[in-house]
Amino acid sequence: MVTATSSLPQAEIPAGRKKKTQLTREKIRAAWIFLTPMILVLLAVAAWPLIRTIWLGFTDARLSVPGSGQWIGFENYLFWLDYGDGEGEWIGLLADPTWWRAVWNTVYFTVIAVSIETLLGLLVALVLNAQFAGRGFVRAAILVPWAIPTIVSAKMWDWMLNDQFGILNDMFMTLGLISAPIAWTSSPDTAMAAVIMVDVWKTTPFMALLILAGMQMLPGDVYEAAKVDGIHPVKVFFKVTLPLIKPAIMVAVIFRMLDSLRIFDLIYVLTPNNAQTVTMSVYARQHLFDFDNFAYGSAASTLLFLIIAGITIVYIYAGRVNLSGDK
């Protein structure tokens, strides 16, 4: 008979002496080989260009001047231009009212559009969460705006919003909502409204689907219990559903918010040259390519990056959104 070994643990073995099997070493080596191409590509298309953009923001680079790109420090951001006679003025991005206008436009657009999208998305998700014949059809229908290229939806709405021949003016006048046609996209009063209108149409589906996914993960027995207890559905929504789908909403909102803060395509096509709708991205690109002010545009891009990064960090921290994916 063999004796049992129920001896006490012996002295700790130093961790450094731990030998890995060939399997483990092979796996780790393979992992890095597998990761290298992806990392290289991301370095090339993300890290390096970002560093270059930041760098260019500190230079006087112009696309029209070959060899330009001397280091000029913070001049693109803020610079005291001395007229030589004791007079002078602050110039640079931080002193540029147009830039601040763009920042304001972007934030305004983001807050209004994302708020409407969240509320509408919640409503659509609630409807889609109900049982009815043809639910698949409706879900497919709301995917259509999501799938249509932004440029195409901008053009479609541009046409519908046309001041003379647009169907929207026709519709609103028939309904008696307006007395005269409105030049939606070119009038300073309505340009932003038009942009928000199109953005809401295009991106509410995304919001609704994310919220719907959150709703469908909810345990059904909670609702049955609430029903048995005779709790009013509205109360159930605010006391049960909403708190439980809050994480899903938070994630959806942050995705939409990051998208809205960098909006470009829609505005470029729908309301070009309208000061009311120039956003940070539009402003940066104008300076980069249209105004031959590459360095200044780079500085604006850098600021945009910092603003978005800052807002994201604050939001994630404040909302405690779990993005790590580790449970």
Binding site: I13, R17, K18, K19, K20, T21, L23, T24
Partner: peptide, 8 residues
């Protein structure tokens, strides 16, 4: 089997 490393 070798699916885990032996610590010692």
């Amino acid at each position: 089997a070798g699916l885990e490393d032996i610590t010692s």
